[in-house]
Amino acid sequence: MWDWAFALEILPTLAKAAVVTVQVTVLGFLIALVVGLMLAACRVMLPGTRFPISLLVELIRSTPLLIQIFFLYFVGPSFGLTLDALTAGILAVGLHYAAYCSEVYRAGFESVPRGQWEASVALNLGRWTTLRDIIIPQAIPPVVPALGNYLVALFKETPLLSAIAVMELMQSAKIIGSQTFRYNEPITLVGLFFLVMSLASAWAIRRVETGINRRYKR
């Protein structure tokens, strides 16, 4: 039922694929952080963009990531946007989580007292300077744990990229399965890999959280 020799034999292949998974996670999350911050900042700074952005965020958050990946990968070319599978996957994952992150940032912005904005007006700071130097430094630290949770969530969504044949963990496990007709070792190993990584990152987030609380609780 469980063949240790076979499990050891496929380990190097899976390890190679794990690198792609981590790569997708890191790049996708970078996109999510940057685009999410831009969306949230636009919403605060330009009142006219508030409605379209909230509509866009709702749209992205209420449709499945799998469909969005297909949309970007298959529909993109008919609008002249031809991406290879890996790029399309990273972009789709990144934009999906950018919508979630923008909501987190928004909560952060709203937690900064109004007096901070008023004080900056009194000091004759520009609106963008206020945002960059006063608001963002206060808004980000409290939401770091929430962002961390989305990092873990994003990481766990990366197997979806196997649907457009990106050679990440799940895809290589599927290929091993279809070549050898043994699914239990590869898929169990992939599951274990995700479990270990998620538990480790949950632990790391808790550490960061307590660190931040210690520094910012007065």
Partner: peptide, 22 residues
């Protein structure tokens, strides 16, 4: 912890493709 810690897709594959082995 197990169900929150692993991907939903991996769980589905596990139930559908691995459990028959057992």
């Amino acid at each position: 912890e197990v169900f929150r810690g692993t991907s939903a897709l991996v769980q589905l594959f596990w139930l559908y493709f691995v459990l028959p082995v057992f």
